[in-house]
């Protein structure tokens, strides 16, 4: 297999094709590195508008981002809360009367011979 026998068009497609794939994904990387910054900027602006912070106070980016650990802790707390809700019972103990359905299988009536004595 001699790669030199391949025509120039094939080489062009190979090099250019791979290059375009790279460019497309690098472009996406650029966009997705920028998007969080824009979102953070938006959040800051919204916070300022709501006067939740002093105008001169500096907000560190980390404060606006909830980390995975924090999310996990919140999720765990919620999970425990909703699971334990089940344990809050009314504390009223009711003894249910056991109702048995009639069953003739051991009835005395059927275990005696109903013999008519002559009068």
């Amino acid at each position: 297999m001699n790669l030199l026998i391949v025509d120039s068009m094939t080489w062009t497609i190979t090099v250019l094709g791979w290059f375009i794939v790279f460019v497309a994904l690098v472009f996406l990387i650029g966009v997705f590195l920028t998007v969080p910054k824009i979102l953070t900027w938006g959040t800051r602006r919204a916070l300022r508008k709501k006067n939740r912070m002093a105008k001169k106070e500096v907000v560190i980016d980390d404060e606006l981002v909830i980390t995975g650990e924090t999310n996990a802790a919140i999720a765990m707390a919620l999970h425990l809360y909703f699971n334990e809700q089940h344990d809050e019972e009314s504390n009223v103990i009711t003894i249910k009367e056991v109702k048995k359905r009639y069953s003739p299988w051991s009835s005395k009536v059927y275990s005696f011979n109903n013999v008519n004595f002559p009068r």
């Binding site: 497609i13 094709g17 791979w18 497309a24 996406l28 997705f32």
Partner: peptide, 19 residues
Amino acid sequence: PKLMILGAAAQVGIFATFL
């Protein structure tokens, strides 16, 4: 997002095989 570049790098297989 920078890990996305690895997805592009691995596409070398496609173009090498084309060749």
